[in-house]
Design a protein around this nucleic acid. Structure first.
Length: 492
RNA sequence: GGCGCGUUGGCGGAGCAGUUACGCAGCGGUCUGCAAAACCGCGUAGACGGGUGCGACUCCCGUACGUGCCUCCA
């Protein structure tokens, strides 16, 4: 099966194709760096990392841009809230620049812990101010903008298909709106492209508004970009007017992405993105994740309870990206146990003695065949709109078979191939987390076997404890002793 | 008020119109020097009411409940 993806644009699952053969242009809406990311935020990046890996498994080279929003994201989409960065800065007694730097660094650290592939372009909104102003200029020249007291706005009534993407009923929304909108705006859905620093205020982050963008060119106005503008400016200036895929959270459909499409397509006259993928949200402890509820767990919170970032990655892969899923530590523990089992299987690759070099050797029951088929099946299920839960099921079935297979009968090459595939597409680092044990430990295992042969149980148990001290557990099977890495214990 | 989604066993979570999802947890057993692991078995899931099928968890309609976005947020 070729890669099929659910496209929000058409609300259907469609075969994926790119504009340029073998190359996919991808834009991912990144974080606003005014706080630590919580598990819900991270889930999105894990899903999109799986997308990138799946594209690569389908022989696409991926050129990907991810923004870091370090300015202009207001605390309200009504364009009259505070800037999150400026607010965060006041909270912490720092400048907006320092806050952005600190949390951006934390974000990059989290990416690494989770084993997320680094996009080719990780771009900060503040590094793309000229490009954003250029976009405003183009829109102004084409007659899509108007200026009011607090900024330059995009007139959504001039973009005929504005409501289509999110199936918006603008009139009904207006009637039921719970937020007062700026009465100077021509339409409730109009949004700020560029905001002016209010008179008498000084922001940490502000730039001179180019005179040619103003009604009165003699005005001297400081300002800053609206939140939606940055994504369009970075995406188009780096990847060109039309993306192959644009990803983001489901919450972005009605406002952020709708606005991105409006401003980008109005400026370029071309389709902004051919595919739009949206991840559903995570709840935590049965309710929506929210700072005020205290369930916005961070990676640090997980670590303090004995869970690694990769345990969390496994947890996220257990549900489909378009389903709403629920985070709890109980569920995370289930994911961790599953990952520990997979690692035990991965450790077998050091302990098999491959007597069969030929994959087609039929004398070896069906293990080699099934392992080969597993690698293929993993890609197939991911190609089905990134069906990661089904992928895990396939791996479980294959690994269960290995549980019942004696060491000598495991087809090492096939196992190696499956592990490679899993690590490539799921990023669980099964192999790097299970290096071969050192020679000393191997010697201890041999000595223990000798003690057991002599029924010297006290010596045998002593050696087993010695290995446990090194984080290695032993299980004795009819076919011999097998070692694996001891699972890390959870803090209660 | 508008738009959307969901309801599967103790917890999580898929596929599929007719045969075990899978994982985790629980109980019983086998194996084992012990332990661990593994294996076998058990608990007979599909909100409710209709409809269409020989047959529905799986398609259609309705009801109830829950939930998301429109307001911080992936």
């Amino acid at each position: 099966m070729t890669l099929q993806l659910h496209n929000t644009l058409t609300k259907k699952i469609e075969p994926f194709t790119s504009q340029q053969e073998g190359k996919a242009l991808l834009y991912t809406c990144g974080p606003t760096v005014y706080n630590y990311l919580h598990v819900g935020n991270w889930a999105a990046y894990i899903y999109w990392d799986t997308l990138v890996r799946t594209l690569q498994a389908n022989h696409y080279s991926v050129e990907r841009v991810m923004n870091i929003t370090d300015v202009g994201h207001l605390t309200s989409d009504a364009d009259d809230g505070e800037d999150k960065l400026e607010k965060g800065a006041r909270r912490e007694g720092k400048t907006a620049w320092e806050v952005a730097e600190m949390y951006a660094e934390d974000f990059m650290g989290g990416m690494e812990k989770l084993g997320l592939l680094l996009p080719q372009h990780v771009t900060k909104a503040t590094d793309f101010i000229p490009q954003q102003l250029d976009l405003v200029r183009i829109l102004k020249e084409k007659g899509y903008t108007y200026q009011i007291t607090d900024g330059i706005y995009f007139d959504t009534s001039k973009f005929a298909n504005y409501a289509d993407f999110a199936s918006l009923d603008l009139e009904a929304q207006k009637a039921g709106a719970r937020v007062e909108f700026n009465p100077e705006k021509r339409n409730a859905s109009d949004f700020a492209l560029w905001k002016f620093t209010p008179a008498g205020e000084k922001r940490d982050m502000e730039w001179q508004t180019p005179n040619d963008l103003l009604i009165d060119p003699n005005q001297q106005l400081m300002g800053f970009p609206g939140w939606h503008l940055e994504c369009s400016a970075m995406a188009m200036s780096i990847l060109g007017p039309t993306l192959d895929i644009h990803t983001g959270g489901i919450d972005h459909i009605p406002v952020h992405h709708t606005n991105e499409i409006a401003q980008s397509e109005s400026a370029s006259g071309q389709l902004f993105s051919r595919f739009w993928l949206h991840n559903n949200h995570l709840t935590a402890d049965g309710t929506k994740i929210s700072k005020s509820l205290g369930n916005g767990y961070t990676l640090q919170d997980l670590a303090e309870r004995g869970f690694s970032a990769l345990d969390y990655r496994m947890f996220v892969l257990q549900s489909h990206y378009r389903s709403e899923s629920n985070f709890s530590f109980e569920n995370l523990a289930a994911a961790k146990n599953r990952l520990d089992h997979w690692r035990a299987i991965a450790a077998l690759r050091h302990q098999t003695h491959d007597t069969l070099q030929n994959d087609d050797d039929k004398s070896l029951d069906d293990h080699s065949v099934s392992l080969q088929a597993t690698s293929q099946a993993i890609i197939e299920t991911l190609n089905n709109d990134l069906n990661t839960p089904e992928t895990l099921h396939i791996v479980d079935v294959a690994f269960s078979k290995l549980d019942t297979t004696s060491l000598g009968s495991i087809h090492q090459h096939g196992l190696q191939e499956v592990l490679n595939t899993i690590d490539e597409v799921l990023g669980l680092q099964l192999q790097s987390s299970t290096p071969d044990i050192d020679d000393d430990s191997k010697q201890v295992i041999i000595e223990r076997q000798r003690a057991r042969d002599e029924k010297n149980w006290s010596e045998s148990d002593r050696l087993r404890d010695e290995l446990l001290g090194k984080g290695i557990t032993i299980r004795d099977t009819p076919g011999g002793s097998i070692w694996e890495y001891a699972p890390t214990t959870l803090l209660q």
